[in-house]
Deep mutational scan, measured.
Amino acid sequence: MSIQHFRVALIPFFAAFCLPVFAHPETLVKVKDAEDQLGARVGYIELDLNSGKILESFRPEERFPMMSTFKVLLCGAVLSRVDAGQEQLGRRIHYSQNDLVEYSPVTEKHLTDGMTVRELCSAAITMSDNTAANLLLTTIGGPKELTAFLHNMGDHVTRLDRWEPELNEAIPNDERDTTMPAAMATTLRKLLTGELLTLASRQQLIDWMEADKVAGPLLRSALPAGWFIADKSGAGERGSRGIIAALGPDGKPSRIVVIYTTGSQATMDERNRQIAEIGASLIKHW
Rank of each mutant, 00 (worst) to 15 (best):
I3M: 08
H5I: 08
H5R: 08
I11P: 05
F13D: 01
P20C: 05
P20H: 10
P20K: 14
V21P: 05
F22E: 15
H24C: 08
K30I: 09
E35S: 05
Q37H: 13
L38N: 06
L38Y: 09
V42S: 03
V42M: 10
D48C: 07
L49Y: 12
L49R: 03
N50S: 13
I54K: 07
L55E: 08
E56H: 08
E56Y: 05
F58C: 08
R59V: 01
P60H: 13
E61S: 12
R63H: 08
R63C: 07
P65N: 04
M67G: 13
V72P: 13
L73T: 09
C75A: 10
A77R: 09
V78F: 04
R81K: 14
V82E: 05
D83L: 02
D83P: 02
Q88S: 13
G90T: 13
G90D: 14
R91Q: 07
I93H: 05
Y95W: 10
N98V: 12
D99Y: 07
V101P: 02
E102M: 12
Y103I: 04
K109A: 14
H110W: 08
L111G: 06
D113Y: 11
M115L: 13
T116V: 06
T116C: 07
L120S: 03
A124G: 07
T126P: 02
M127Q: 11
M127C: 09
M127W: 13
S128H: 00
T131E: 03
N134G: 03
T138Q: 15
T139I: 13
K144H: 09
E145W: 09
E145K: 14
A148N: 15
F149W: 14
F149V: 09
L150Q: 05
H151T: 11
M153E: 08
V157D: 15
W163V: 13
P165K: 07
L167F: 04
I171P: 08
P172D: 13
R176Q: 13
D177Q: 01
D177Y: 01
T179C: 05
T187N: 11
T187C: 09
T187I: 08
R189P: 02
K190P: 03
L196R: 15
T198D: 10
T198V: 07
T198S: 13
L199E: 15
Q203K: 14
Q204W: 06
L205S: 01
W208G: 02
K213Q: 14
A215L: 03
G216T: 10
L218G: 04
L223V: 13
L223N: 03
A230V: 06
D231S: 05
S233N: 01
G236N: 06
G236Q: 02
R238V: 09
R241K: 06
I243K: 00
A245N: 01
G248Q: 01
P249H: 07
I256Q: 01
I256S: 01
V258T: 07
I259D: 00
Y260W: 02
T262I: 09
T262R: 08
Q265I: 13
Q265S: 15
A266Y: 08
E270P: 03
A276I: 07
I278Q: 00
I278K: 00
I283N: 03
I283R: 06
I283V: 12
K284L: 13
W286D: 02
